[in-house]
């Protein structure tokens, strides 16, 4: 027996079909499509958003057209599928049109806060040290107030109006997003692969862009989706208090306020805008939960 010892590197394994390019978001998407809860919530949201976006074409009646003789018709009246409000306007049309403003006021502040908050949080977390402490302590002052109180206070100080309440809501959410972005960045910053990137001679900007941002965006995104429902409810609250949208503009929170007087006459009609706010924010919440677990596949 000859005792030859052969050493070799494993030669390129039999070339299997090239692995399908699996981008991270594609994997997350597939995970979401398998989740019945995500599908249901997504479908509900799609319906509500679709109805709101295409309201001018889909709505059966003019949402502003009042009629004194057709006030507070019950649900299912001929010609008025969901009845009429206290001024005889078609509820279905008003709810569809109201969704436009309500959804806008739910989504825009969160998007703005997501952008601003992530930038501040990344900067604070990556720089670290004293500057980070100063930034976080200053934002903690905002953080200490309950968000409803803060939203009402800022909105009240700026004066009523839709753009002012959008600004107020953005200011409410920015500190919360910064908090999350900062803590994730601080965590990521001390990981070995950041050190390895520094070792390769990369600039701070390149490290943040390539190595930090990609790993911070995920958790911040999940947190921001959770804020969508809060934002919707706060926006409705501001309108209810007369700080947001003004009548006769249809908006769910404002409709809830004006229909308050009809609650003993026709409680079902009065409850409709509230039910829509409830369903929409629950759907946003469930979807956020599913996104969170779908994005957990790595690590």
């Amino acid at each position: 027996m000859s005792a030859t010892l052969e050493l070799s590197l494993p030669t390129a394994a039999p070339v299997a079909a090239p692995a399908p390019s699996r981008s991270y978001w594609r994997v997350v998407g597939r995970q979401l499509r398998r989740d019945p809860m995500a599908l249901a919530a997504g479908l509900v949201l799609l319906l509500i958003i679709g109805a709101a976006v295409f309201a001018p074409w889909l709505a059966p009646a003019d949402p502003y057209k009042a009629s004194m003789i057709k006030r507070l018709l019950p649900i299912g009246s001929p010609g008025f599928l969901l009845g009429t409000d206290e001024l005889g306007r078609d509820m279905l049309s008003r709810l569809m049109h109201g969704g436009r403003l309500s959804l806008l006021m739910g989504v825009v502040p969160v998007l703005a806060a997501f952008g601003i908050g992530t930038a501040i949080g990344l900067f604070a977390g990556y720089v670290g040290g004293r500057l980070n402490m100063v930034i976080i302590r200053v934002l903690d002052v905002f953080y200490a107030f309950p968000s409803v109180l803060l939203a009402v206070a800022i909105s009240g100080a700026l004066g009523p109006g839709m753009s002012n309440s959008l600004i107020a809501l953005t200011l409410v959410f920015v500190p919360q997003v910064v908090r999350v972005a900062e803590s994730v960045t601080t965590q990521v910053r001390q990981l070995d692969y950041i050190e390895a990137a520094r070792m390769s001679g990369a600039s701070a900007f390149s490290i943040i862009r390539v190595h930090v941002l990609g790993n911070v965006l995920g958790p911040v995104f999940v947190y921001a989706t959770g804020l969508l429902s809060v934002s919707m409810i706060l926006a409705s609250g501001l309108s209810f208090l007369g700080l947001g949208v003004k009548p006769p503009e249809p908006e769910w929170g404002l409709m809830l306020n004006t229909l308050r007087s009809a609650i003993y006459v026709n409680p079902w009609i009065a409850a409709l805008p509230g039910a829509l706010i409830f369903v929409t924010s629950i759907a946003f919440n469930l979807l956020a939960d599913s996104v969170r677990s779908a994005m957990d596949i790595r690590r």
């Binding site: 692969y193 050190e195 390895a196 990137a197 070792m199 001679g201 190595h211 790595r298 690590r299």
Partner: peptide, 23 residues
């Protein structure tokens, strides 16, 4: 420093932790 780093490298203890999970 940048030139220096082109010539000197570190092999990290935990090979897994030194790889960016997103790349």
């Amino acid at each position: 420093l940048k030139e220096f780093r082109r010539n000197l490298q570190m092999v990290f203890q935990d090979s897994f932790a030194s790889l960016n999970p997103r790349l």
